[in-house]
Simulated scan of single mutants.
Amino acid sequence: MTHALLVDFQIKPERAEDFARAIARNARRSLGDEPGCRRFDVCRDPADAGAFFLYELYDDADAIAAHLASAHFREFDALTRDWVQRKAVRTWLLAGP
């Protein structure tokens, strides 16, 4: 069953543009290098440059685990960890077609 990973970030204002570049790279690598990653949308609040929302679709829980274990995700996480003011992650099951 398809899993949706929803991630809400608040990034330090002085790092928002750096984060935007880093998350875009991570999204491209996830889609290109991970067979179980079906979608990776990066959304940004037009009223708050430091607010980001990710909508990711994976084949299953194993595909999410593979994403979190990937070298490109680990590099992204290490690079951006200190830029994050708040992060919330939720996993849902896709109920529709």
Rank of each mutant, 00 (worst) to 15 (best):
M1T: 08
T2D: 05
A4S: 14
A4W: 13
A4P: 07
L5N: 04
L6W: 13
V7N: 05
V7Q: 06
D8L: 05
D8E: 13
Q10L: 13
I11F: 02
I11R: 01
P13C: 12
R15P: 03
E17Y: 06
F19H: 09
F19K: 05
A20G: 10
R21L: 15
R21C: 10
A22L: 10
I23P: 03
R25V: 08
R25W: 10
N26Y: 13
A27T: 00
A27D: 03
A27N: 00
R28D: 05
R28Q: 07
R29G: 04
S30L: 00
S30E: 01
S30T: 03
L31N: 07
D33K: 05
D33H: 13
D33R: 04
E34C: 03
E34P: 00
E34V: 00
E34W: 07
P35F: 01
C37E: 02
C37M: 07
R39C: 01
F40P: 02
D41I: 02
D41F: 03
R44M: 14
R44N: 11
P46G: 06
A47C: 13
D48T: 09
D48R: 06
D48I: 04
D48H: 06
A49Q: 14
A49D: 14
A49E: 14
A49R: 08
G50F: 13
G50P: 11
G50Y: 11
G50N: 05
A51N: 11
A51G: 10
F52V: 02
L54A: 09
Y55A: 08
Y55Q: 11
E56V: 02
L57A: 04
Y58I: 00
Y58L: 01
Y58S: 00
D59Y: 00
D59V: 04
D60I: 01
D62Q: 13
D62A: 14
I64H: 12
I64S: 02
A65E: 09
A65Y: 02
A66P: 02
A66Q: 10
A66E: 11
A66Y: 05
H67W: 03
S70Q: 07
S70E: 09
A71T: 03
F73M: 09
R74M: 09
R74L: 15
E75D: 15
F76P: 09
F76R: 07
D77W: 14
L79W: 14
R81P: 10
R81T: 14
R81C: 10
W83I: 10
V84Q: 09
V84A: 08
R86L: 08
K87W: 13
A88Y: 09
R90H: 14
T91L: 14
T91Y: 12
W92D: 10
L93M: 06
L94C: 08
L94M: 07
P97I: 04
P97A: 12
